[in-house]
């Protein structure tokens, strides 16, 4: 299977990260590291739609929170193992993405962006008015001391799960980039009309990208209730998620998966440090300023500096000569 060696390399890197985190023997490393990994999943997942097809999703917080609320609801109905719950959250968010996309993707790109923002607020209003998942008062979720099968501390278990999700999302993103699907996405991004005219099934590809991207955002949100133990609508639907998730790929570079990965690790780590040392409002301000600075001054992001996006930028030629 193509991409399998890369998958193994990713697994090895992930194992090394986990071991390194264990070696520090510091609980806080796992606690802060979880957030960094969560942003890696969100940034790479967002980029499948935003970076590859060029459709900007502002509703990240909606997909993310939906995954989290899915966990809260399932926790009250039937207690399932967390990986299954994550999958369920992913399916729900993916379905939401599909529905959204179906409503708006036939329009110009800006309409899609505005509609995603609107969707997040509609979803938030529904959660506020739904007492079963806590309503506006919020919901408490009890975090077990240790994970059921692994017998390790639960925060470490969450860290491990998120690390696994990182491996999956990166492998999927790379697979897409190197497949016909990625070529189709790039064609949509570069010139949708020309792509449609050349026989690229644009609507179907866009729907696929929206659903897949939404699914990863939802899966990233699913473990959140166990991480924070208390979930209320304003914090789950926080605009900070949307800004961070857009800023990270744009800062790292949207053309290829290393971009969002680098951006997420950089910005999320910086934020974790700044939250502890300065204040959380100031660190959000920094993210906003860096985002605006990068889109103005460095449109290709950090990977553009090193030419890492060369392969992705060569797409139009590759399309012309067929698969290489």
């Amino acid at each position: 299977m193509r991409g399998f060696p890369f998958f193994l390399v990713c697994l090895a890197v992930a194992a090394a990260v986990f071991l390194a985190a264990r070696l520090t023997n510091n609980g806080y490393v796992f606690f802060a590291g979880y957030v960094v990994l969560q942003y890696v999943v969100m940034a790479v997942g967002w980029n499948i739609l935003g970076g590859y097809t060029g459709y900007v999703n502002f509703g990240t917080a909606g997909f993310f929170a939906l995954g989290a609320y899915c966990t809260v609801a399932l926790e009250k109905l039937v207690p399932l193992p967390l990986p299954v719950v994550m999958l369920a959250g992913g399916v729900v968010s993916g379905a939401l993405g599909l529905g959204m996309g179906y409503l708006t993707l036939r329009l110009r790109g800006a309409f899609f962006s505005i509609a995603t923002l609107a969707m997040a607020v509609v979803a938030q209003t529904f959660m506020v008015n739904w007492p079963f998942v806590g309503g506006s008062a919020g919901a408490f979720v009890i975090r077990p001391e240790t994970a059921e099968y692994f017998g390790i501390d639960y925060i470490r278990y969450l860290f491990l799960l998120m690390l696994g999700l990182c491996v999956i999302v990166i492998a999927v993103a790379r697979l897409i980039e190197r497949s016909r699907l990625g070529d189709g996405f790039a064609a949509i991004r570069d010139d949708e009309l020309a792509a449609e005219a050349s026989g690229v099934p644009t609507l179907r590809l866009k729907l696929f990208a929206t659903a897949l991207s939404g699914m990863f955002l939802g899966m990233a949100g699913a473990p959140l209730p166990f991480y924070v133990t208390y979930l209320d609508p304003p914090s789950a639907f926080s605009l900070a998620y949307a800004v961070n998730t857009i800023a990270m790929p744009l800062i790292g570079g949207t053309a290829s998966w290393p971009g969002p990965l680098i951006g997420a690790v950089l910005i999320a780590t910086l934020q974790q440090v700044a939250t502890v040392t300065i204040s959380s409002a100031v660190n959000l301000l920094i993210v906003g300023l860096v985002l605006v600075g990068f889109v103005i001054a460095a449109p290709r992001g950090i990977i553009g500096w090193f030419g890492l996006d060369r392969r992705a930028r060569a797409h139009p030629r590759r399309l012309a000569v067929g698969r290489t």
Binding site: G50, G54, A110, A247, L285, L289, V292
Partner: peptide, 15 residues
Amino acid sequence: GGLRGLAFFFGLLFI
């Protein structure tokens, strides 16, 4: 103006 322009205004909103 597409992706980056939108991100620019989104950044302004946030700032």
